[in-house]
Design a protein around this nucleic acid. Structure first.
Lengths: 265, 265
DNA sequence: CGCCTATTTGATCTGATTCAAACAATGTGG
DNA sequence: CCACATTGTTTGAATCAGATCAAATAGGCG
């Protein structure tokens, strides 16, 4: 289905990542989407910032704010979400250690949504100025981050398809496939299992369904022996079956070695 | 609700735009999202490309292809869509004259979705090489296009909220608000009316609902005197009412003069 | 243990789909 | 200019996926 990206180091849990320099996690992630020179890696490695710890369910950046730093998830789990007037919430993305969820803040002044934690997390804040200087000195990195934001957009599109045209069963299966892929890439997976501290309500907020229906749909996925999901951990028992249930084709993740490349000058 | 962007020229219909150089339409559009110098405008103006005409319902770029040029809509109407195995379609965006719907092709090799016409359209293809050279010589333009792709992503997020958490009535109202805004910005609106050659089935594919339900929801919007929609043209009779029905807040469009700015060096 | 939060179950309701058919508008060829 | 084919809109009725409501159960933890 997809080419396996080589893992350079593995941190089994979301919290374990804390023993690794978050910049290395970021470099690792960027390498899954495009090639980098050693010079560029060193430049990334020397980015300075302030690290801050968050408890679960705290906002890292809030709608309406004008951030002056990008944030890099070092440990934990974060998500991107909006809340409607009636209190309904839509989660639009999950972010694991190594991802930089608000690159957009570099070019869009005001946040149009929130980024919050779903578990105790540590976040490294790197000033916008440092990032812009980085892009000036290493245009290739600018293109790589641009590519990264384009891939995020591709993921949004895939979610739109799910929300608009897939039924609950298929939508949830698809989401779990995607999450496991991202965990694999981040080195947070072992034997098709990973830590996933999400409640069923949160899965509902991501898939646009009610908690009760998430519960029933999970039961169906379990009954068909596709997954195990309990105590904050997800195991995919039948990858082919789940891929089939969710019509999951990872092409939209635009991983390296799948026909995609970053132009370089 | 939002600052009015000054219109420099107006082409009343989607086809009329044909009498204007598509590069001017693009410049106009880019100016609604960020400032440009005269030098940059001249550089955009001198981009060379090949123009091609499409009939309605033809694909401009197809899933799986590796485009080597970006496309700029000169006249007509295009959309971005995916089709599932069972034939269900999800439209993910609409594109009016002046927009460059596949900037992503510059950095993502393989298309993960289709871009097709919804009306007879003319499209200018500008080679990737020309665009990359442009960004090298004018980094400010690179940032502006980057910003443009980030705004697209913000629009996807807003659609996700609609698809996941809004009911049919609100979702459709929101979409019509957005479309009218985009038409306004493109100079394709007069007195809250614009050409909109969409069938109810297409509105359904964009909002994730069935044709029948689109029909009934439109009737409700009409019954409440919010809109008129027939014969390929949309009129918003009660803007405040429609904004209210759709909980529409244009902040997510990140227009100029609404607190957003593009960093420049 | 007792509190709080998350999961599970059952019953009921409803927004939206599906199916089917009528109707309207537009275009096409004879 | 009409017959008729095609495509889009509208209406009605039946059905269903998923939401809502309500309550029981199960974990986790100070």
């Amino acid at each position: 289905m997809h080419k396996r990206v080589e893992l350079q180091f593995v941190s089994a849990t979301l919290a374990d990542a804390g023993s690794i320099d978050p910049r290395d996690l970021m470099i690792r992630r960027l390498e899954t989407i495009g090639a980098m020179t050693d010079i560029e890696k060193r430049a990334l490695k020397s980015l300075a910032g302030i690290q801050r710890d968050f408890r679960a369910y705290e906002d890292i950046v809030r709608e309406g704010e004008k951030p002056n730093a990008v944030c890099l998830i070092a440990t934990g789990l974060a998500c991107r979400y909006k809340v409607l007037l009636d209190g309904e919430r839509q989660i639009m993305a999950f972010h694991v250690p190594g991802s930089v969820p608000d690159t957009q803040g570099l070019f869009l002044d005001r946040m149009d949504h929130n980024i919050g934690t779903l578990a105790p997390s540590s976040v490294l804040f790197i000033p916008h100025s440092a990032m812009l200087t980085l892009f000036q000195e290493h245009p290739g990195l600018g293109y790589l981050f641009w590519r990264s934001t384009l891939i995020e957009a591709a993921i949004y599109r895939e979610w739109m398809v799910g929300l608009g045209r897939r039924n609950a069963y298929s939508r949830l299966a698809h989401l779990l496939c995607e999450i496991m892929m991202l965990m694999k890439l981040a080195g947070l997976e072992t034997g098709n299992a990973c830590e996933l501290p999400l409640t069923q309500a949160e899965l509902g907020d991501a898939t646009g369904m009610s908690t009760v229906h998430v519960n029933r749909t999970l039961q169906e996925l379990r009954a068909r022996n596709l997954i195990a999901f309990k105590a904050g951990s997800l195991t995919i028992l039948d990858w082919a079956g789940l891929v089939n249930a969710g019509e999951f084709d990872p092409a939209y993740l635009h991983l390296r070695g799948t026909g995609d490349a970053v132009p370089r000058h």
